[in-house]
Design a protein around this nucleic acid. Structure first.
Length: 233
DNA sequence: CTCCGGCTAT
DNA sequence: ATAGCGGGAG
């Protein structure tokens, strides 16, 4: 079964990843607000460390926009310390809580109830929210079909020869948007699967042996072909 | 030692 | 284009 279109290829990749790893259950949280907090705290940070910070916020009763506004920034920083960049991230959480309060009366439905393009632009204008975090919020909190591109996505697609690895964020995102149905559930699962695959198999030093995408991957084929020159195991 | 579910300021 | 932010785990 060889692929003729990018859409076929991306669909095939999704299918193989899903068969290999199954549903990833993203984004783990008790509320949409917590998802947004997590999206900010996980910037360039291992999720494990974010979980501690989230637990601290909940234990302190600070997992709400009002409480985040009321809590002094340095106290907030102390609570989220395990997630790293705590001073910067405390400021980011306050920036989001301020916007949500002043413009949307702390109502996420109100924030999300606008054209997706307008929502994304509003998010991007908030201190601490860049393209990836904005799309995390779009997909995992607002349940809108905006594909999340991260370094893992780029690494996997680059190894597969789909992209060069030097395109801007929006260009990579366009590949998915132009090839897949605009389904938030699909985008949710696809991104999570790429993440899982990059962490577990398509790592910085790839473990090509046993990779479910080996048949589609020039990098992997070369690695295995070089019999013992191997890209690991 | 590196790496993590990035973004801002220079 | 690059420095700075930062704790935690392998």
């Amino acid at each position: 079964m060889d692929e003729h279109t990018l859409a076929d290829l991306l669909t095939q990749i999704y299918s193989l990843l899903y068969q290999r790893y199954g549903p990833q259950h993203w984004w783990p949280s008790d509320s949409r607000f917590e998802t947004i907090v997590g999206a900010i705290l996980t910037q360039n940070t291992a999720w494990r460390n974010v979980e501690r910070a989230l637990a601290n916020l909940k234990a302190a009763g600070a997992m709400s926009p009002a409480r985040i506004r009321e809590t002094a920034q340095d106290e907030l920083a102390t609570l989220i310390r395990p997630s790293g960049y705590f001073n910067t991230k405390a400021r980011k959480l306050k920036a989001f809580a301020d916007v949500l309060g002043q413009r949307h009366h702390d109502d996420l439905d109100h924030l999300f109830d606008q054209e997706p393009g307008a929502l994304r632009r509003e998010l991007l204008a908030i201190y601490g929210i860049g393209e990836e975090t904005a799309d995390d919020i779009m997909v995992y909190a607002a349940h809108l079909p905006s594909f999340v591109i991260d370094s893992y996505t780029v690494r996997v697609l680059a190894r597969l020869g789909v992209i060069s690895g030097k395109q801007p964020y929006h260009a990579v995102q366009a590949l998915f948007h132009d090839s897949l149905p605009p389904d938030a559930g699909l985008f949710n699962e696809y991104h999570a699967l790429l993440d899982r695959h990059a962490k577990e198999t398509c790592r910085k030093l790839p473990l090509c042996r046993g990779c479910c995408l080996l048949g589609l991957c020039p990098t992997g084929a070369a690695a295995v072909g070089l019999s013992s020159g191997d890209l690991n195991e």
